[in-house]
Design a protein around this nucleic acid. Structure first.
Lengths: 142, 142
DNA sequence: GCTTGAACCTTCAGTGGCTGTAGCTCTTAT
DNA sequence: ATAAGAGCTACAGCCACTGAAGGTTCAAGC
């Protein structure tokens, strides 16, 4: 039987985070000691490890919820798993593209700065005046 | 005199966002009509445009606060402005690098999936078993 | 002058994914 | 028996907004 602290150490998770996962229904309610402390088994450890690995790959918790549900129906096709992963990949690609255009803009701006007084600063001028150089205003920033 | 709605339209900002900026002290408290509605001048419009342009470039609000303060002392050197921008560029670069390593890992994972049953899914196996392929666990995810 | 409807007001809750704190209680080793 | 360390609950805070409820004000048209 594993304490919450042991679970945390083994998966490099904060104790509070595990309790949070329980609260939002991502981890099951574990058994308790007479005194009310949580005690976990190996299945729970595996589940937590799965969640953490998925988080390291940037999957949002809702996607992880889907993956866990699919993982519990072993006889069905994994096409849905594939779809979740591809969807996430698309989001990551989109974020990279967005950040790269920010990066280019920032470099250009910084490159023009001649380190004069603030009143002549090119950076501040750009921030004051620039007209939507960035194409897509509807995507989230990152 | 500009209403909050006009300010919002001109800067492509939500009305609530402008009130939020006021609440956190990024925008000044404007004058009001007898009935209590906000009325702005051109200086406020410029300030809001500055904030929105900076946000489009991904500057966090605290950095924007710094930039606005620096912008109000025209005779000093703009080295500090430069420093804020370079600091932000570094963060953007770091996020890109992190996302690119995620992207590579996701691609590898998806590439291995043969679309069998869930019980043999390579994606799920990776998520269950993979040992920290991603070097830096201390940086924020994005 | 009056009506109408759009725009404004305040306040509060929610987003995602945790993290930190306060003030307790429980377990375990000595 | 005691004391340290780990656990417990409940709640607040982070960032940068966004939405909604429920009410008030403004401006245009008649």
């Amino acid at each position: 039987m594993l304490t919450i602290g042991t679970m945390a150490r083994r998966t490099r998770t904060k104790v509070q985070t595990i309790r949070y996962y329980e609260q939002i229904g991502l981890m099951p309610e574990p058994g308790r000691t007479e005194g009310g402390q949580r005690r976990y088994g190996d299945a729970e450890l595996d589940r937590l490890a799965f969640i953490r690995h998925s988080r390291e790959l940037g999957f949002p918790l809702e996607a992880i919820r889907e993956l866990l549900a699919l993982s519990d129906t072993p006889e069905t096709s994994c096409a849905q798993v594939d779809a979740v992963a591809r969807r996430h990949l698309k989001e990551v690609e989109a974020r990279i593209a967005r950040l790269q255009s920010l990066e280019a803009e920032l470099r250009r701006m910084i490159g023009e700065c001649r380190n004069d007084r603030v009143s002549d600063c090119r950076i501040l001028e750009v921030l004051r005046d620039h007209e939507e150089c960035l194409s897509d205003h509807r995507t989230p920033e990152l």
